[in-house]
């Protein structure tokens, strides 16, 4: 009784989200038809869906390549960002040395760097992983540093009066306190990581969704380009959902000091 009621309530809550998405898809379909847009310029959703069905195996084969690159790059970014943020928090010298380099790395237009990377390290997975890392480590470092710094000074003093060493304060207080910020950065990184993978593939590869889009685009197979985009979006959403699930699990174990969720619209 109660359970079915809450399921019903959940379904009702999702109605606006589903309705808006469906409305957009229908509007797209209708407008392409009514305005008589050529399908090689903009295919309607029905044609894209048909393309996904027709070349499903092909799409999956390339999606697997992109997914592998993304996961590897994303994981390396987390480890790299963890090390850099710890160093930045630990020592002012490291901060002064590393921070300008990190920011400089983000001012490089990766589009111009990607072809060079192919020349430097070849067309194998390394070049894509480097591009993904360049795209993703920055938001993680920034959010992790902010999170580690967000620790309550009074809490730190309390640890000190109990005789805690700096390392104990870092491990037992600062890391748990940083989790909400860390996951915020991780969510940004999860979404942009697939873009990094596509850009890496664009400039020199023989597989992956990015490569597929480039080839199909060159042959005016626009429906196939869109089919690849759909799969790419699903990939990004899956990675995002995995991050959100991990976040929920971790924050249940390590609840933040202030954990009120504010939504101005809800009464």
């Amino acid at each position: 009784m109660n359970t079915s009621g809450s399921i019903k309530k959940a379904l009702i809550e999702w109605i606006p989200a589903v309705a808006v998405t469906l409305a957009l898809i229908v509007a797209w379909e209708v407008l392409v038809d009514v305005m008589d847009v050529q399908h090689w310029l903009l295919p309607p959703p029905s044609v894209i869906a048909a393309e996904i069905g027709d070349s499903f195996g092909f799409l999956m084969k390339h999606a697997r390549v992109t997914a592998a690159e993304t996961l590897l790059g994303f994981s390396i970014s987390i480890v790299l960002a963890g090390g850099l943020s710890s160093g930045i928090i630990w020592s002012r010298t490291v901060e002064r040395t590393v921070y300008p380099l990190i920011i400089t790395s983000q001012t490089i237009p990766i589009i111009t760097l990607a072809p060079l990377l192919i020349i430097w390290v070849g067309t194998d997975i390394t070049s894509k992983v480097i591009v993904i890392v360049l795209f993703t480590f920055f938001p993680i470092v920034i959010s992790l540093v902010a999170g580690l710094r967000s620790v309550d000074q009074e809490m730190v003093d309390m640890f000190r009066t109990l005789g805690a060493s700096p390392f104990q304060i870092f491990r037992k207080l600062m890391i748990p306190s940083a989790l909400p910020n860390f996951f915020a950065g991780l969510k940004v990184a999860a979404v942009v990581s697939v873009i990094g993978a596509v850009i890496g593939e664009w400039f020199g590869s023989s597989a992956g969704l990015g490569w597929m889009m480039k080839i199909a685009g060159g042959q005016f197979q626009t429906a196939r380009v869109f089919a690849a985009i759909v799969v790419l979006s699903i990939l990004a959403m899956a990675l995002f959902a995995a991050v959100v699930a991990t976040e929920k699990w971790m924050l249940k174990k390590y609840p933040p000091t202030a954990n009120r969720v504010i939504r101005l619209g809800d009464s």
Binding site: M155, R160, T161, A164, P176
Partner: peptide, 27 residues
């Protein structure tokens, strides 16, 4: 003196991810 003088601050400063027993034994 740090660690050898007991000091109870104004706020309770309990760690939200630790149980009462785990908070109590922190020192």
């Amino acid at each position: 003196r740090l660690g050898n003088v007991s000091y109870m601050q104004q706020k309770d400063l309990l760690l939200p991810w630790r149980t009462v027993a785990e908070n109590s034994r922190l020192g």
